[in-house]
């Protein structure tokens, strides 16, 4: 059997066993090339056209009644899952396109949400500064009362005692509120920063990948 007879027989075998024309063309372009390029000993190693054909069909996922030929395929499918991390398969491409689209939408609509976002950040900043000022004010008032009270202790002792007490109370309250407030603010800022940066990272890396 010469090369062209071999190829005709192979094509016929694939066709008779229900392989799609598209798959046949692809397989034939590979094996046809190989057979045309190889020496007679080399292409005879492929086996008869029907032997090679049933291997091709098995790898193509078409069952020819030879269960042994499926084991190779199973090994490849198993190996394939582990490699998925490298391969931009269709699903990844879709996800990337979606992220790209989202990024474009976000950039284009900056005039719409930019003002709102800026307003929210400014409002949060205002509340934090306001609270901080109020608490510090409480502390300052406490110190003032303390000083006044200590001075009054020598002139009008009862009033001095009351003022000193009030001063301690206010100064203490300031400390009790201020420290946790600062901690809370730091935690909030950290959280907000990491949330924003991870969202950005996710979006950008998705587009770049």
């Amino acid at each position: 059997m010469d090369r062209s007879e071999y190829l005709v027989a192979l094509r016929q075998y694939l066709f008779q066993n229900g392989m799609s024309t598209e798959d046949i063309e692809e397989a034939m372009s590979f094996y046809g090339d190989f057979i045309m390029d190889s020496t007679p000993e080399e292409y005879q190693r492929l086996g008869s056209p029907s032997e090679l054909g049933s291997k091709i069909l098995a790898e193509n996922g078409t069952f020819t009644g030879n269960p042994g030929s499926f084991q190779m395929e199973a090994a490849f499918v198993g190996g394939q899952n582990r490699q998925d991390q490298y391969y931009n398969n269709a699903a990844d491409d879709q996800a990337r396109r979606n992220k790209m689209l989202l990024l474009i939408i976000l950039v284009v609509t900056i005039p719409v949400w930019g003002g709102v976002a800026f307003g929210l950040v400014a409002a949060a900043f205002g509340i934090i500064v306001g609270l901080g000022a109020a608490v510090l004010g409480l502390g300052a008032a406490g110190i003032a009362l303390l000083i006044e009270g200590i001075r009054d202790l020598f002139t009008v002792p009862p009033v001095g005692l009351a003022l000193t007490g009030a001063g301690f109370l206010m100064f203490g309250l300031c400390g009790v509120i201020f420290v946790p407030l600062i901690r809370l603010v730091i935690r909030f800022v950290k959280w907000a920063a990491s949330t924003v940066s991870s969202a950005l990272n996710n979006l950008l890396s998705g587009v770049r990948a």
């Binding site: 397989a27 590979f30 090339d33 390029d37 090679l52 790898e59």
Partner: peptide
């Protein structure tokens, strides 16, 4: 091309053509 590729790979591993075709396709 297929033949040359097969020869190259065969330098280090006894693979058959019918092993390489599905690899190329994938």
């Amino acid at each position: 091309y297929g033949y040359e590729l097969t020869k190259n790979i065969r330098d280090c591993a006894p693979v058959s053509e019918s092993t390489l075709y599905p690899v190329l396709r994938r």
